[in-house]
Amino acid sequence: MTARNSFGLPDLTGRTVVVTGATGGLGLATTRALARAGAHVVLAVRDLARGRAAARTVDGSTEVRHLDLADLASIRAFADSWQGDLDVLINNAGVMMPPESATKDGFETQFGVNHLGHFALTNLLLRSLTDRVVTVSSVAHRSGRIRFDNPNLVGEYRASLGYAQSKLANLLFTLELQRRLTGIRSPVRALAAHPGWSDTPLQSRVHNPVARTLMVLGNKLVAQSSSAGALPTLYAATQDLPGAAYVGPSGFKELRGAPTLVSRSPAASDAEAAKRLWELSEELTGVRFPAELVR
């Protein structure tokens, strides 16, 4: 059985899903599959023109809204404009190994977009969420370490180090979010997924030319398609799984294959580190777990 036909999406008619970073790659593949299954999919994108062009390639119900995860004001505007229920939030957008740079709010770009942006977005939308949050991580989390004393990597920036930190942060965020949701007996679940090695535009944007060449070559020789890489996310978004579950490909080294539950590194299972990262993220973004949900 191939990854492509390893499970079927349920009928998603009447359900609303937000997918961040939906203009191409995994995000667009995820959007297309969800819309074909009947969901109304909101493409949350930085570039509205590209988002509208992407939406025109989707067979189903879509909507395009502006969201810049590198700008907390944009994230707040997106959340403030939301009305009605949101069934599933898919935190898919990300940047991978760019040159050293900062978000509008001064965060190291990978930590700021991949983690803090999604942290803020999720908490601001929690009042509307009815089912689950799926955050896309990576096998790169296994080499990650959270620099609690220097999360923006000032004076020690390396692109690969920043990327691994942000992907580890995705899993610690999922772990602590699920703990909080369980604590208030919320039906909403927090899950994570990773695509294995998938052929997406991210690799071609890696700043280091040697790493970029190797990744582009790997895309041709090893990678699975974006559609196959989206399957773990789709599995996490639609199947009956426990909170904090982590889904990835079932093949060798989790590089490709049908979606299945996979393990995370010991660092990504550290509940105390997850709490500490949550507190740091609240301090940096000014966004907190909604108090009214706790009452």
Rank of each mutant, 00 (worst) to 15 (best):
N5L: 08
S6I: 09
F7H: 09
G8M: 05
P10Q: 10
L12V: 04
V17M: 06
V18W: 03
G21T: 06
G25R: 14
G25V: 11
G25F: 00
G27P: 12
A29S: 15
A29R: 13
T31D: 11
T31K: 10
R32Y: 00
L34D: 15
A39S: 13
V42D: 10
V42A: 07
V42Y: 04
A44R: 04
V45N: 08
D47G: 05
A49N: 14
G51N: 04
R52F: 02
A55D: 06
R56P: 09
V58N: 09
G60E: 10
S61I: 08
S61D: 11
S61E: 11
T62D: 09
V64G: 12
L67H: 12
D71Y: 09
I75V: 15
I75L: 08
R76E: 15
R76S: 14
R76L: 12
A79H: 14
D80Y: 10
Q83Y: 04
D85K: 02
L89D: 14
A93P: 05
P98C: 06
P98D: 01
P99A: 13
D105E: 13
D105F: 01
G106E: 10
F107R: 14
Q110F: 00
F111W: 15
V113H: 11
V113Y: 10
N114R: 09
H115G: 10
H118F: 05
F119K: 00
L125S: 08
R127E: 13
S128D: 15
L129K: 07
L129T: 11
R132Y: 08
T135E: 06
R147N: 06
R147H: 04
P151V: 08
N152F: 00
L153Q: 12
V154W: 03
E156K: 14
Y157E: 14
R158I: 02
R158T: 05
S160W: 13
G162P: 12
Y163P: 15
S166V: 08
K167D: 04
N170Q: 08
N170T: 04
L172G: 02
L177W: 09
Q178N: 02
R179L: 01
R179I: 01
L181K: 00
L181Q: 00
T182M: 00
T182R: 00
I184G: 03
S186A: 06
P187V: 07
V188W: 01
R189E: 14
A190C: 02
L191H: 02
H194Y: 07
H194A: 10
H194F: 06
P195R: 08
P201K: 13
S204F: 12
V206S: 08
H207K: 08
N208F: 01
A211L: 08
R212W: 04
L214Y: 06
V222A: 12
S225W: 07
S226Q: 09
A228H: 03
G229F: 00
A230V: 12
A230K: 05
T233K: 00
L234V: 06
L234P: 05
Y235P: 00
T238R: 02
Q239Y: 03
L241N: 05
A244G: 04
Y246A: 01
V247C: 04
G248E: 13
S250C: 13
S250K: 10
G251I: 09
L255F: 11
R256E: 05
L261D: 15
S263Y: 08
E272T: 15
A274G: 03
K275L: 05
K275E: 07
L277I: 11
W278H: 07
W278Q: 03
S281T: 12
E282A: 10
E283T: 09
G286M: 01
F289R: 00
P290E: 06
P290K: 00
L293C: 01
